[in-house]
Amino acid sequence: MLALGIPFVARAQHFPDELNFKLDWQVNAPVGYDYADKLSGWGMNFEVAYEVSERWSLGAFASIHTNHGYAGRETIQLSPTEALTTDQLHSAFQVPFGALASFDLAYTPHLRPYVAGKIGAMYEQNTTYLNTVGFYERPWGLYVSPEIGLNIYPQRYGRFGFHVAVYYSYATNDTRLLNYQEDGKNSVGFRLGICF
């Protein structure tokens, strides 16, 4: 995260005031299904947006996140004549990216709350690990995500500040690995980071 952030921080003073960046650590929890369903903080988020009016910004985003899960030993009927007994480790790695629109709910010297909507594509790599082998699928899907957040500026009307946000996301990615099937992916989470 630091390696990605430094070049942008170092050059931020040369960007126009209307151009803003966010770089966040991310906590994500899949909801509504049981594949790789453990909450985790293995993720980050990057955004760039341009103020097209006093309150509206348009931009782009990309994020990454990994969630894991464990399924205990069970016998799976793979077909009428095939059975498999195993436990499983699940790993879901997701990379959504696309466009965003943001609307500032207020504009104060230190606080700038906002709501945002994101739309784009999501690449996903879902891997099921058994004790000696692994199976994976790499589906693509459509991604949408509403978000509400707050930019906090220690200096009055400063450029550099802190960022917090909560979000919900839905992606149309489909996966079927052994006895687990994912028809779309719902997630909730929050982000903590910097804005400049």
């Binding site: 990454i64 990994t66 498999l84 007994t85 195993t86 480790l89 790993s91 790695f93 690990y129 004790n131």
Partner: peptide
């Protein structure tokens, strides 16, 4: 971004063999 998948802890798997029959 694209190289940051977190690998799972394989020690979470139990030591029993995977058993496949057909």
């Amino acid at each position: 971004f694209t190289s940051c998948e977190k690998d799972p802890d394989m020690s979470e798997l139990d030591s029993d063999f995977t058993v496949y029959t057909q």
